[in-house]
């Protein structure tokens, strides 16, 4: 049964990653791309999680936390940078 689950979720996650990559390529603005990159990282995290659950180990757990941290720090940094560049009169 685990093999079926693995195959199904691998297909679903690949489709999701393809969608996110399309949005990164097309995204009209920088913020759209950041958002899509964040989602792509979340999809990687989901893949790591499924690998752990199917093979019953916990080796990727710290990797998972690191990935969500990178997504968080990355999108916050870019959001601030974008806001500052367009509107340099106001602090924030």
């Amino acid at each position: 049964m685990m093999q079926i689950v693995l195959t199904v979720s691998a297909v679903v996650l690949s489709l999701a990653a393809a969608g996110a990559i399309v949005r990164i390529a097309r995204g009209p603005s920088l913020l759209d791309r950041v958002l899509a990159a964040d989602v792509l990282l979340a999809i990687f995290g989901a893949a790591l999680c499924i690998d752990m659950a199917v093979n019953r180990h916990l080796n990727n757990l710290m990797l998972l936390v690191a990935i969500s941290l990178i997504g968080f720090v990355g999108s916050v940094t870019v959001a601030r940078f974008v806001a500052d560049r367009r509107e340099n009169v106001r602090e924030s």
Partner: peptide, 12 residues
Amino acid sequence: MVTGALMSLAAA
């Protein structure tokens, strides 16, 4: 697991 993977697809 399958529902969780579907949620990623929903986001995409």
